[in-house]
Amino acid sequence: MREIEAKEVTKTVSRLFQEACYYLPQDVVTVIKKARDAEESPVGREVLSRILENIEISAQGEVPLCQDTGDAIVFLELGQDVHIVGGDLYSAINEGVRQGYDEGYLRKSMVGRPFSARTNTKDNTPAIIYTDVVPGDKLRIIAKPKGGGAENMSRLAMLKPAQGRQGVIDFVVQAVDEAGSNPCPPVIVGVGIGGTVEKCVLLAKKALLREVGKPNPDAEVAELEREIFRRVNNLGIGPMGYGGRTTALAVHVDVFPAHIASLPVAVNMQCWCARHKEAFL
């Protein structure tokens, strides 16, 4: 049994959210640069150049990349030989969010009673936490601030199994088409196929954590990703919706078995500002 102090978790979560909101991961920057060089639309190229300029300004550490510093999503991979001491794990994470959003001058965007009063919780808690228990004695923490604009354009469909592969492709392409300029394209399209309703959506969200543009290791799924990617970029929406050949930077699909009656498909939309940071304790 390895012991990890709850206060270490708090410190780490605070640091990860601050870093995520100022420094875009290098893999994301690289695909945006590639897209800028390949984009046919002059307006689209201009938008991508300004996005790259924004990334440079933010990396000076004074002003966050985007004013929507998101809801605080935390993915944990908790080694089964880890023992958290000195406090409870989820409280430690929420304290980390509280401190990070305060110290990092990040916007607090969570509201309580979302259907009525919509009162700001003032510290961006509660965090949205998912935990997987894994072998080993480490704790992996992934902090993912997720903006509301792209999240709002996400979709779920319980397709009929008869709709099959083509049904999946059509649904995902339609979701991106209807989202249009709203989710801050170029987007990364996270797709989940299979499982139950909630499993499917979580697959789509977790697919966004993959290195951008890295294909699924399964050849059939990778081929599906390529086909959706081609169709999505043929929509013509382009950077910020002003028209162009770069509507998506990548399409990431993850798959799980499903019930004999079901073919769930989920689309979790990610704006170009695909922020996440991780650490191992």
């Binding site: 966050p64 916007r107 509301g148 709203n182």
Partner: peptide, 22 residues
């Protein structure tokens, strides 16, 4: 249509991009 991040001392405003107009 915008909701900024809090400004650091000495700055007029924090991050200040647009939100979804719809």
């Amino acid at each position: 249509f915008m909701g900024p991040t809090p400004p650091r001392p000495g700055r007029p405003i924090g991050s200040a991009g647009p939100t979804t107009s719809g």
